[in-house]
Design a protein around this nucleic acid. Structure first.
Lengths: 188, 188
DNA sequence: ACCTGAACACCGTTCAAGT
DNA sequence: ACCTGAACACCGTTCAAGT
């Protein structure tokens, strides 16, 4: 999978410039930031962008893999430190917070847990679903969560909560409130 | 408000053509259907579209007012026929179903209940919020719904449920399942 | 093997000219 | 008062030419 032969030096440099430019552009203009603009910021021809990232999803994913991996790791930290039910609630809250604070990330997470599952977002999808699975199953064993929900459904519902919170201007208190409602419904 | 002097005959005709074309276009291509294409389908210059509908939101709203009004009326029918709690649940389910089946409507409802509240969607917003308020307050009096939720929050959460369901391909059974979870959390 | 940038098709929005 | 459509700025995507 991950890059058999190493990239040519100029290719590698362009790749990294594109990533940096993409991060800035997504942060400023959201998930629909102009690709052309990203290429220009990176000082690169537009064709080069397409060579490295065949579509917007791929670029979005590349720009945020690190954050997603961090979230996945955070899941394990939490589950070591707290009872499973609490760990899950806390993790979902952090997930929603990041979804709302980091522009573009919410869209990425959304398509990562969507049914069709755009082929492009598999890396993030796998990573986040893995983390969710561990937390959800532990909570179920502990009896804190009903047994008939699948991990990916919990992620989708959390995405719904984030969407609802955004409509309410996404203040942190609201997120916690909405999540509490959700967890009450999901209770074992 | 609503049109002081009547429109000139050709203006009125164009207005209606645009609406019909918009309905078809939104149905086929979703909320982001090309405005230029809509004007062309209506056999009208693009400037004429902008004259009648200053932005996409306005056109979207005009295309779906009738459906929104029908949903609002449906709320009252339901509340006459059923206990308040049931009426609310049933109504929210129908709201979600329509949101998913009629392309473009979900986006409209979303911005209608969003915090900023785009000035354009006030008609739909007022109508849908009014209906929700009647149902929610009745359910609260009946003790079927906790007293500390505002009607607009219920609408936002329903929008979140619709979003989550769409990620799961929007099959009706899933919607009911997710809504049941939500209502459990919202229980009085 | 990789990059460049011109070229194409498309879209939103405005506005001078027309009736 | 209203309509038209050309004009402008922008965007995504492809591909021939270059190194």
């Amino acid at each position: 999978m991950t890059q058999a032969r190493p990239m040519r030096a100029d290719a590698r440099r362009n790749y990294e410039r594109l990533l940096k430019a993409a991060e800035r552009a997504f942060a400023e203009h959201g998930e629909n930031a102009s690709l052309d603009d990203i290429a220009k910021r990176a000082g690169v021809g537009s064709g080069t962008l397409y060579r490295h990232f065949p579509n917007r999803q791929a670029l979005l994913e590349a720009a945020y893999v690190d954050r997603i991996e961090a979230l996945a790791a955070r899941a394990d930290t939490l589950s070591r430190r707290r009872p499973a039910g609490e760990a899950l609630t806390q993790w979902l809250e952090e997930l929603c917070l990041v979804s709302l604070q980091v522009r573009g990330l919410r869209a990425l997470l959304g398509s990562a847990v969507a049914d069709g599952g755009a082929a492009a977002v598999t890396v993030c999808g796998t990573s986040i679903k893995g983390a969710a699975t561990r937390l959800v199953e532990a909570a179920q064993r502990e009896g804190a969560l009903r047994g008939d929900v699948e991990p990916v459904e919990v992620l989708r519902l959390a995405h719904g909560v984030a969407t609802a919170s955004e409509l309410a201007d996404g203040e942190a208190a609201r997120i916690r409130r909405y999540l509490t409602l959700l967890m009450q419904g999901l209770g074992g």
